[in-house]
Design a protein around this nucleic acid. Structure first.
Length: 580
RNA sequence: GCGCCCGUAGCUCAGUUGGAUAGAGCAGCGGCCUUCUAAGCCGCGGGUCGGUGGUUCGAUUCCACCCGGGCGCGCCA
C-alpha cells in the first residue's frame, strides 16, 4: 500500500470532519526523525481562515488521528504541527503484505492508467552515440519503466535521426570516396569519415556540393538506388547502435524515426496554412505567434516564427515533430507523450506543444528536460572538435574499472567469483555505476562528467546498493534459503529494525512519485536510504544466528530489502548481482 | 535586445505544491574485520543557502531588483 497516500487521505478526512473545511492536510514526511515520521501542516494554514489559533485546530486533529491503529503517537508541536509516529505493528503489517506480493513487492497500481509514449535516446544515423545521448537514454528508460510499473501502457520510442540534408553529402561521399568493406565492418566510423570529408569538400568544391544536393533530391523523390544505399546506412548503423543498447540493457518498443513521417510533412504544412496557423514569409513558411489567438503570453510576444518549411521547399525538425505528435495522438492513441530531450531545446518544445494545442491535439505533452553534460572544467562537452567521448568508450572504461576491482578482491581472497563469471559482474557493476551517477542527480541541473567520481564505487553510488543486495543474497545462500520464500511475520523491535521497516514501507509511494514527477532521482535517493538502513541493520542484527520468530522476522526484512533493491534498481535499468 | 535555466559545506550534489536546529557523498580527522562480504559500519569537524529589499505566523523555496555563470532566439537537429 501507499502509506503516505493513506495517511494523507486519513488526515484530510479527519480535518474536514472537524472543521467542515475541505482543505488538504498538507501531510509530508518529517525532515527530522525527532518529529516523528510524518507531519500534518494544515493547522497553520487554516487558522486565519477559521479565525482560530493553529493549536485549536491541531489539538483535536491530533486526538482524532491518534485513534487510528496505524498511528502510535500524534503530538502537537511548535506553532501547530501535528507530528505522527507510525505504529510498529502497522508498519509490520504493511511489510507482511508487501512480502506476500510476489509480483510487485508492494507497489500499487495507479488509480487510472494511460497509454503513454516516452520518446527518448534518439541518436542520429551515421554518428556514434556520445555522452550527450547518455542522459536521454538513461532517464528515458527509467521513466518508461517507472510508468509501466504502476500499470500504464508505455511505448518507448527511439525517434532516430534517419532523415535530413546530411544524406546528400553521405550519398555523394560514399559513391566518390567510400569504402564498402569498411562500411560493413565498422559502419559508423566509416560514415563519420565520409561525412567529414564530404562536408569539407562541399565547402571548397561547388560542383561536388551541387552533386550532393542532386543526390538528396533523388533520395527524397524515392530514387530506388539512393533509397537502397540510404537503407544500408540505416541498417549498418542500427546494428552498431543495438550493440550499445544491448550492453546497457535498453530496449525500445518502437524504432519509428524521422523518415517515417516524411510523407506526412506536406500535409502538415498545408493544414497549418488552411487553418490560418502558418503563412509564407520570404519564401519560407512559419507560425507567427503574435498573429494568433489562444497562445501563451510568452509566445504571443515572440517575434521569431516557428518555421515548418524552408525557402527551398525542404521541411524542418519542427514539421517532423508536429507530424509525429499528430500520429501519436490519432494513430497510436496515446493520452500522454514525454519528450526526454536536452533542456536547450525547451524553446522548440514550448512551440511544438502550443501548435499541437492549436491543431486540437488533446494528448498531454511534456518536455522532460535535462541539463547539459559538462566536462571536468565545467565547460559543455564538445563533440565536434577534438575527440568526442563516445558512449561505447565510456562503457568500456566502466567495465574495465569494475573488473579490475573484482580481480583485486578475488586475488586477496575476499571474493569468490569464478573467472568466467567476472565479466558479467563487471558489466552490471560498471554500467550500473554510470547509470546511477546520472540518475541520482535532479535532471534539471547540468551534469558534471567525472570519470573518477562516476567510477569510484564508493559512498552514494550504484555499487553501494548492489553491494547491499549481494550481502543479503549471501545470507540466504549461507542459510540455504530463497529470497522468494515468504518468511515472517515481521516484528520490528530493535531501532535498526524499526528504521529499516519504515523505509521499506515507503517504497510504493516513492515509485509513484518518481514516475508522476518524471524524477528518477527520487527513487535513487530512496534506494540509497534503504541500503543505508539495511547496512546499519546488518551490523546490529544478526539474521542467521537469531532464533525462532526473531529469525523469521529478520529473514523477511532482509528478503524484502533485497527484492525492493532489485526491483527499484531494475526500474532504473541497473542490474543486481549475487556476489561482488 | 527578448526569453529560459542555474548560484546551497573545500569539491560534486539533495532539499518533495513555503514548515521546525538546511542534509548526503567525496576529500580531512578518529575508531571498528576470530560473529551473515570492510565496495562496509560508527563518530568528529566543516554553511552570511550569491546580494539587497518585499510578501508571510514562518522563505533555501514565492515576488522585485542587482551581481555572477550558462543556454536559446527564420530557413541545423
Amino acid at each position: 500500500m501507499r502509506i503516505e497516500k493513506f495517511l494523507d487521505e486519513l488526515s484530510t478526512r479527519a480535518l474536514s470532519e472537524l472543521t467542515g473545511e475541505a482543505s488538504p492536510a498538507l501531510l509530508k514526511p518529517t525532515a527530522d526523525p525527532r518529529h516523528g515520521d510524518f507531519q500534518v501542516n494544515a493547522a497553520m494554514a487554516l487558522a486565519k481562515k477559521l479565525g482560530k489559533k493553529p493549536r485549536e485546530i491541531a489539538e483535536p486533529l491530533a486526538e482524532r488521528l491518534a485513534q487510528s491503529d496505524a498511528i502510535e503517537r500524534a503530538e502537537v508541536a511548535g506553532p501547530g504541527f501535528v507530528n505522527l509516529t507510525l505504529s510498529s505493528a502497522f508498519v509490520a503489517r504493511v511489510l507482511d503484505e508487501a512480502a506476500a506480493d510476489s509480483t510487485h513487492d508492494g507497489v500499487d497500481r495507479a488509480d487510472t492508467t494511460d497509454r503513454i509514449v516516452v520518446d527518448f535516446s534518439s541518436p542520429n544515423i551515421a554518428k556514434q552515440m556520445h555522452v550527450g545521448h547518455l542522459r536521454s537514454t538513461i532517464i528515458g528508460d527509467a521513466l518508461r519503466n517507472l510508468l509501466r510499473e504502476v500499470g500504464h501502457e508505455v511505448i518507448g520510442v527511439n525517434h532516430i535521426g534517419d532523415w535530413g540534408t546530411q544524406y546528400g553529402l553521405l550519398l555523394s561521399g560514399m559513391r566518390e570516396f567510400g569504402d564498402a568493406t569498411a562500411l560493413e565492418d565498422s559502419a559508423i566510423e566509416e560514415l563519420e569519415r565520409i561525412y567529414k570529408q564530404a562536408s569539407a569538400r562541399a565547402k571548397e568544391d561547388e560542383a561536388f556540393a551541387e552533386r550532393a544536393r542532386a543526390e538528396l533530391a533523388k533520395l527524397q523523390s524515392g530514387d530506388a538506388e539512393n533509397l537502397a544505399l540510404w537503407e544500408k546506412f540505416v541498417s549498418t548503423t542500427r546494428a552498431e547502435l543495438d550493440r550499445v543498447y544491448d550492453r546497457m540493457g535498453i530496449r525500445f518498443e518502437s524504432w519509428r524515426g524521422e523518415s517515417a513521417y516524411n510523407d506526412a510533412l506536406p500535409g502538415v504544412v498545408a493544414t497549418l496554412q488552411e487553418k490560418g496557423l502558418a503563412r509564407p514569409d520570404d519564401g519560407a513558411v512559419g507560425v507567427f505567434w503574435p498573429e494568433l489567438d489562444g497562445v501563451p503570453a510568452r509566445l504571443k510576444a515572440q517575434k521569431e516564427p516557428f518555421l515548418v518549411q524552408k525557402r527551398d521547399g525542404a521541411f524542418l525538425y519542427a514539421t517532423t515533430d508536429i507530424a509525429a505528435a499528430l500520429y501519436r495522438s490519432a494513430e497510436v492513441g496515446a493520452q500522454r507523450v514525454y519528450y526526454v530531450v536536452d533542456a536547450r531545446q525547451a524553446g522548440h518544445f514550448e512551440q511544438l506543444i502550443a501548435i499541437a494545442r492549436l491543431l486540437g491535439v488533446q494528448m498531454a505533452m511534456e518536455h522532460v528536460s535535462f541539463g547539459t553534460v559538462l566536462d571536468e572544467a565545467g565547460k559543455p562537452l564538445k563533440t565536434r572538435d577534438g575527440k568526442a567521448v563516445t558512449l561505447a568508450s565510456l562503457l568500456d572504461e566502466a567495465e574495465s574499472r569494475a573488473l579490475a576491482r573484482i580481480r583485486e578482491g578475488v586475488s586477496e581472497g575476499r571474493l569468490d567469483i569464478p573467472e568466467d563469471a567476472q565479466a558479467g559482474v563487471a558489466r552490471a557493476v560498471g554500467i550500473g555505476a554510470v547509470k546511477y551517477a546520472d540518475l541520482r542527480q535532479n535532471r534539471s541541473s547540468d551534469y558534471q562528467f567525472d570519470w573518477d567520481k562516476m567510477l569510484s564505487f564508493q559512498g552514494n553510488a550504484g555499487p553501494y546498493l548492489q553491494y547491499a543486495y549481494a550481502r543479503i543474497a549471501s545470507i540466504f545462500d549461507k542459510g540455504g534459503l530463497s529470497l522468494e520464500d515468504q518468511r515472517g511475520p515481521v516484528s520490528l523491535v530493535a531501532v535498526e529494525e524499526v528504521r529499516l521497516g519504515k523505509v521499506l514501507a515507503r517504497f510504493s509511494d516513492v515509485v509513484h512519485q518518481a514516475g508522476q514527477a518524471a524524477l528518477p532521482h527520487l527513487l535513487t535517493d530512496h534506494l540509497y536510504e534503504l541500503a543505508r538502513a539495511f547496512s546499519a541493520f546488518y551490523e546490529a542484527c544478526p539474521v542467521l544466528k537469531a532464533e525462532g520468530a526473531e529469525r523469521a522476522s529478520r529473514l523477511a526484512l532482509a528478503a524484502l530489502t533485497a527484492r525492493q533493491l532489485s526491483r527499484g534498481l531494475g526500474l532504473l535499468g541497473i542490474a543486481v548481482v549475487r556476489r561482488m
